[in-house]
């Protein structure tokens, strides 16, 4: 087992370096002069050179890559050339908001997707199944950002039920940080008003973000449930007079949870990617918004940093799933 984990970890490290190389290559085909931008529109030539030297932009490319690589591995993602701020520092500040949003969105996808998948399986090929299929196909096809705008338009502006954007009301103070996740911190600090407020703010962006994952979870659950319902032990249970409700809710659901969990791991990365669309719509101060704002200003270091962070989180999630599978299924370990 230890060897298996080690091998996987080694692979993880190699992939990370590969990703850094890709990002570095991409960022160095840029046409503009980053130093001139950082120096500001009115800067003199000498001012530009000051910046160029400060950011190491006057070194040859391989040297720049080596510097970048060693810096990244030490957790230093460089500085934003537009704001002069430290990228690692900024990412750490914005990541909890994104993490919280992704977690809630995932929870929503599971809590809505699993029952819908079950229902579709139980009512297979009937009206309800078709209706659910439409929901699931639609939630893939709906552009996330457009869904977000629709939710804002109807739920916030027309009905006034939920706030338009942000993490908290304008004047509400964040609970003193423990985990840096507002929902969790508010509960830990016993600030239930803040918790409700944070919850009200997170629901719409979470719905918009969860749409594609919802579709996947519905599909997987439906398929899995159909299979399970035909298996011997279910048939036996039914013959023993165990109620249909109990069969589906307990036995079948338990079996269908395994592929659902795998799906969650897979979707985690995609959801992190989706934040670049959703956070902008809902003014959600996370890394997606940060990446987009930097991207439209050709500020590469933050874009690279955010991409690396998202990529690394995704890799890490898959790594952990691999390990979990290896632990659950010894055959997999030996096959490696």
């Amino acid at each position: 087992m230890a060897l298996f984990v080690l091998k996987r970890a080694l692979l993880l490290g190699l992939m990370l370096i590969g990703l850094i190389l890709i990002m570095f290559t991409i960022s160095h085909v840029a046409p503009g002069d980053p130093a001139a931008v950082a120096a500001g529109p009115d800067a003199t030539r000498e001012m530009v050179e000051v910046i160029r030297e400060e950011y190491g932009l006057d070194e040859p490319l391989p040297v720049q890559f080596w510097i970048y690589l060693t810096n990244v591995l030490q957790g230093d993602l460089g500085r934003s050339i537009r704001t002069t701020r430290d990228v690692t520092h900024d990412l750490l500040r914005y990541f909890p908001a994104t993490f919280e949003l992704v977690m809630v969105a995932m929870l929503l996808a599971v809590l809505i997707g699993v029952p819908l998948g079950m229902l579709a399986a139980v009512f297979r090929d009937r009206g309800l199944d078709h209706a659910i299929r439409l929901v699931s196909v639609s939630s893939v096809a709906l552009p996330m950002f457009w869904l977000g705008l629709l939710l804002q338009f109807f739920i916030s502006l027309k009905l006034g039920w939920l706030p338009l954007g942000g993490q908290l009301g304008l004047l509400t103070e964040r609970p003193p940080p423990i985990t840096h996740l507002i929902l969790v911190d508010a509960l830990l600090r016993g600030q239930f008003d803040v918790f409700r407020e944070a919850l009200a703010h997170i629901i719409l962006p979470a719905i918009a973000l969860s749409a594609p994952a919802l579709a996947a979870i519905i599909r997987v659950n439906r398929a899995e449930m159909i299979e399970v319902l035909h298996q011997d032990f279910i048939v036996t249970a039914r013959a023993h007079g165990i109620s249909q409700f109990r069969i589906v809710a307990v036995y079948a659901l338990r079996n269908a949870m395994i592929p659902t969990l795998a799906m969650i791991g897979l979707r985690f990365g995609w959801m992190l990617g989706g934040t670049v669309l959703v956070e902008g719509v809902f003014d959600w101060p996370g890394i997606g918004l940060y990446a987009v704002q930097s991207a439209v200003n050709s500020d590469f270091q933050p874009v690279m940093g955010a991409t690396l962070l998202i990529g690394f989180s995704f890799m890490l999630a898959n790594f952990m799933i691999d390990i979990a599978y290896g632990w659950l299924d010894p055959r997999l370990r030996e096959a490696q």
């Binding site: 929870l107 929503l108 809590l111 809505i112 006034g160 039920w161 939920l162 706030p163 409700r196 407020e197 919850l199 009200a200 997170i202 629901i203």
Partner: peptide, 9 residues
């Protein structure tokens, strides 16, 4: 899920 955030706005 939906009720949790309902009237808090």
């Amino acid at each position: 899920v939906l009720v949790a955030g309902g009237p808090a706005a």
